[in-house]
Design a protein around this nucleic acid. Structure first.
Lengths: 154, 154
DNA sequence: CCAGCTTAGTTGTTATAACAGATGTCGTCA
DNA sequence: TGACGACATCTGTTATAACAACTAAGCTGG
């Protein structure tokens, strides 16, 4: 009887559990991203733009090929990366140069201005993370990060 | 010495932990949403449209005011909801009628065609969730869902 | 009852995303 | 060496998102 009940209960709740996790991830993600957007708005910066600035800061003075930038972004197609970088170049945050030894490749580098901007955002963004997650213990955060990473496996 | 080390170590890892959770949530979210988009694409349906269909199916034959639909969607401004519903009406999945007793309100209802579509998607979507998360135990899923919900609190 | 506030939805405009196809450059192998 | 396929990026087009301003309908207090 015990076994029967278990096998009955197993199927249905398990599937809806998967769906619940799916929905929770999306809800949490949109809430978090919205907080970031709100932080960036006064700086007249969108989230993908901020993302690019962080990537290029991390890449150092050598910069990165456009394609590499695209690969490191969570979600963006190649054509969008091109135009994103072009727009950012117009704003003076990024410099794009065609590589001499391989003229197919466009190297994107962060400018001094872009660097100042992204540096100025470190503290506000850090504070935002604090506001979002200060009520969770280190242990909980660790568990959460681990489970999320595990969720993406396979 | 112990205390000192602790106070030194405490600050930095904790903040980067928050950031790590933030990034994990976004990465997992985009991966999951991409899977859904891939499932919906053969049906020529976008994720917000699918969302609306599920909401209106859940609302039953009485339908819902546009504003209500917007509130139940994760992220979408009012103007976008209007146009989203208009587009879906053109495709025959939704019917919009102005309410007689309060002509400001537009009630949106799912059509027979829309209902067939969203019902036909239940199984593929369920299978997608299975592919995404079959490697995680019920216990892990429960913990994950609980922690995510908790992350949004406060 | 009616001027002015509120509510619900719409329209206009600009920015960005998605997708397909084109362009310019490079490597390579007959 | 030079045709050809692959690579990295770009352009064109359409769809959708963001934001602001507007319209129409209902409500309310003098």
């Amino acid at each position: 009887m015990r076994l029967l009940r278990q096998s009955i209960k197993q199927r249905k709740p398990f599937e809806s559990l998967q769906q619940e996790v799916f929905l929770e991830v999306l809800r949490t993600g949109t809430a978090m991203i919205q907080d970031l957007v709100d932080v960036l708005k006064p700086f007249d910066l969108t989230q993908p733009q901020y993302n690019v600035l962080r990537i290029l800061r991390g890449a150092g003075p050598g910069g990165l090929p456009s394609g590499e930038v695209g690969d490191r972004m969570v979600a963006s197609r190649e054509p969008d990366v091109t135009r994103l970088l072009v727009r950012m170049e117009k704003r003076g945050w990024v410099r794009r140069t065609r590589r001499a030894d391989n003229r197919r490749v466009v190297t994107a580098r962060i400018t001094e201005k872009g660097l100042r901007l992204v540096n100025a955002l470190d503290e506000p963004v850090r504070q935002m993370h604090g506001r979002q997650l200060h009520h969770m213990s280190g242990r909980e955060l660790n568990t959460l990060a681990t489970l999320l990473e595990r969720a993406r496996r396979e």
